[in-house]
Each structure stands twice: as structure tokens, then as C-alpha cells.
Amino acid sequence: MTVKTDATFGQATTGKVGMWIFLITDAMTFGGLLIGYGILRAGNKSWPVPSEILGIKFTALMTFILICSSLTMVLGLDGAKRGNRREAVKWLLLTALGGLFFLGGQVYEYSHLIHEGFTLPSGNFPATFYVVTSFHGMHVFTGVCYLLITAAGVAAGKHLDNGANFVEITGLFWHFVDLIWILVFTFIYLL
């Protein structure tokens, strides 16, 4: 099947442009949550210092895992573009594994924080922290499912046509998840 392109966006397929439009709307949702966090924080002089409550080193490791998974994603796309099915599947599965490690880290972090009394109703900081990070975590979970479905399709000999357009669209979603985490890590953990 040939995927149509629109002259307005050059060689980007309609699927890719559609994914970009979805990602922009999703970014607005994250933007709204982060702005809400910013307003509550700016309007409260007794807001706690996040680095004194949250484990920065552990979260930095989780960030590094997501960065690694972005690398494996582009290597998977590179393999798919070259028509190397085996390599594409290997890197896609490693990307999904990176996502699962991240989710495991988030579960560990939450259980540790809840044990310390940092619960959802215990204040504005924990409430906004859990809403933003769990919303991102749901994106990671969706991304892992998306990656596994794509890897299964590639293993079955699909998705390598049209310059591996399907794999590239999957990659756009995964890189977006990484990009959002870069901002969440800075605004919620480090600032």
C-alpha cells in the first residue's frame, strides 16, 4: 500500500503529520499540568524544596534509561529503514525493555515516597507531583504497548515498506515521551 503525502509537509506522510498534531495536543495537556504546578508553587512561599524530598540520583538514573531507550529506538528505525528485520526487532524490544525498567523505577519510587508519608492528599506538592508523573507514566506504558505491537508486526514481515513509516511514527511517540520526561525532570525534580 502506498502512503499518500501532502505537498505542504514535503515527504512527511499523512500518518506522520497526524501523529505530530496528536503530540502537539498532548503536549498542551502536559503544559496545562506543568503550568498548574508552576502557579501553585509560585503562589506558595512555603513550598518544599523538591530535591530534599525526592531522590534525585535515582530519578537521574531513570532519566538515563529513557535517554538510552531513545537511542535504541532510532537504531531500531535505522535497521527498519535498511530492511534489516532482525536488527529492527532487537532494538525495538530493547526500547520496550527500557520503558519497562522506567515503569519499575516509578513503582519503586512511589512505594518509597508513600511509605515516607508523601501521599496524594498530603499537600499541593505531592498532589501535583503524582498527577504529572503518573500521567507521564501512563504514556510510557502506552508507548511500551505500542512498541511491542510494532515489534510484533516487524517480526511478521510488516511495517518495513514506505521507508519504515510505521516504525518512524511509533518512534515519534516514544521520543515525545522522552522529551516530556526531560521537562518533567527539570521542572518538578531539579527546580
Binding site: T8, F9, G10, Q11, A12, V17, W20, I21, I24, S70, M73, V74, E168, G171, L172, H175, F176, D178, L179, I182, L183, F185, T186, F187
Partner: peptide
């Protein structure tokens, strides 16, 4: 953070290689 986000967008999401209209979008 903005530099990191721009690197991901430009190189990993390939915006650097797309037509300008998609980059602006």
C-alpha cells in the same frame, strides 16, 4: 532542559530533516 528537548526533537524526531512547515507546526 530546552537544549535537551530541542536535540531530541531535531535529531531523534527528525524535525531537522523535515520541511519547514512541519518544523513550525
Amino acid at each position: 532542559a530546552v537544549t535537551k528537548a530541542a536535540l531530541v526533537g531535531l535529531y531523534y524526531m527528525h524535525l531537522k530533516y523535515e520541511k519547514r512547515s512541519l518544523l513550525w507546526l
